Amino acid sequence: METANVRSPCWRQLLAAVLVAIILPAPVYAITAASGEPASLRNEAGDGAASDQQAVNRELELFRGSVVSLSQAMAIAEALHAGATTADVSFDGASESPVYRIKTLHNDRIWQHAIDATTGKIVGGEAALPLRALDAEDRSNLVALKTIRHRLADAVRVAEQAAAGKAISGGLIREHGRLNFAIVVMSGSDLKEVILEPPGAARRR
Rank of each mutant, 00 (worst) to 15 (best):
A84E: 04
L60V: 04
R132M: 07
R174K: 11
T86N: 04
P198M: 05
T119K: 06
A82E: 14
N5R: 09
L19Q: 04
R12V: 13
S169F: 07
G36A: 15
D47F: 02
A163S: 02
A84K: 03
R101Y: 01
R58M: 00
G83K: 06
G125A: 07
G200H: 03
A17M: 06
A73T: 03
K121R: 15
N180W: 03
T119V: 07
S140I: 11
A21I: 00
A128Y: 12
Y29A: 15
A162D: 02
L172E: 04
A127E: 15
E37G: 03
G171C: 05
K146V: 09
P130D: 11
H81C: 08
P9Y: 08
L134A: 09
F181I: 04
Q112Y: 13
R205D: 13
S95P: 00
I173V: 11
I23T: 09
A84H: 02
S40F: 13
L70P: 04
C10F: 12
R157V: 12
G48C: 11
A79W: 08
L191C: 08
V56S: 08
A127L: 06
L134Q: 11
S35R: 12
C10D: 15
A73G: 09
E78T: 14
I195N: 01
Q53S: 00
V185M: 03
V18C: 10
A182K: 02
R12S: 10
A30M: 12
R149H: 12
A182L: 14
R7G: 00
